[in-house]
Amino acid sequence: MQAFFETFDTTGDVGLNVYGKTLENIFQQAAIGLFSLITDIKNMEINATKKIKIRADDYESLLINWLNELVFLFDSEGFIGKRVKILELTEKKLIALIDGDFFDEKKHSKGVLIKAATYHKLKLERKNTGWKATILFDI
C-alpha cells in the first residue's frame, strides 16, 4: 500500500486522515499533509534541509509534538518542507530530515494558517493492512 493523506474538515477547523503501511509512513505523510495545507508544495524548490529531533512519552504525543514542531518552524522561520525522511522512530523519539524552502509571499500561495495540531479526536490505529492516523488542526 502506498502511504497517503487526505484532508477533511469539521465546522471550524481542518483535519488529516493519514494512511500508511508503517508508523514511519504515518509520520512522514502527516508532515507532508500539514505542509500542503499551508501552501502548494508541488512546485516548491528545495533550498534548505532541517534535521529535527522530537521526544515524547508515547506515539500519540510524539505525533502531535512532531507536527507542532513543524508549525513552529514555519511560524518562526517560514520553513516549509517538501520531502520528509524519517531516520529514526521509537515510541519516545523521532529523528527526521526535511528538505524544503523558506516561505516567500511572492513565490508561494497562502493557504491555511495553522495554530496548532491538537489532541481533539486524535487517533493512531493499527489496521489490517497498516496504520491510520486522524489529526485535527486548530486554524
Partner: peptide, 26 residues
C-alpha cells in the same frame, strides 16, 4: 498559539499528577 501548545502538554502531566478524571484529553 505556542503558549497554549506548551501548556496543553504541561497540563496533560498535571492531570496524571493530581488524579483528575477527564472525559476528553483536551
Amino acid at each position: 498559539h505556542q503558549i497554549c501548545t506548551d501548556f496543553i502538554e504541561i497540563m496533560a502531566r498535571a492531570v496524571k499528577k493530581y488524579n483528575i478524571f477527564l472525559p476528553d484529553r483536551e
